[in-house]
Amino acid sequence: MATDPRAPEPLSLATFTQGIWKENPVFVMLLGLCPVLAVTNTATNALAMGLATLFVLLCSGVLVSLLRKVIPKQVRIACYIIIIATFVTIVDYAIQAISLDLHRALGAFIQLIVVNCVILGRAESYASKNTVINAFVNALGMGVGFTLALLCLGVVREILGFGTLFAIELFGASFQPWAVFALPPGGFFALAGWLFLFAYIRKRRAAAQSEETHVA
């Protein structure tokens, strides 16, 4: 979002990595929080949701970039939403065909990928102004960043809430699961915890840097 809207960006490593760390959609920009919190009670659900979002991000990014000279400026948002909704419908039916259990676990949240602001944000601020290859790479980075963030939450919540990881038992029978982490409040607490951690790291790093310049 910080990129200059006019000039198309040259393809670089940053095109890919900005979505993973510097502009991570979940931890830095706090976008698309609904699925982040709603379906991350187990790592499996989190991974599935992340991959579904990644697919929609990639396809819609490429298509929007291909059509960027055709879509009239006034109705671009509506066009983007229709494009995104089409791919979400594909994903919805695909998941239903692959695993009905997974489809049931994710529920309406697959269809709610449509209103995930990460995707529309990428279409509007990046794909509509850059070449197809750039849009593809950038969407890949954002999607991977989003999936990683979902996994971060899913892993923590599954370990604490169920004592398992990807449905594999981690602790012995004496383990008392911390049930609240499998329930809705746990989602809020887990995300808040990660944000605390990142803020702490950032602050430590800033302090170390200012000390260095001070000494020099």
């Binding site: 409040p185 809020f188 808040a192 605390f196 803020a199």
Partner: peptide, 18 residues
Amino acid sequence: DTVTQAALSLMIAGLLSL
């Protein structure tokens, strides 16, 4: 200081949800 705006809001939301 480390408690940023968003993290604090999420913490409160978690308590409300509880």
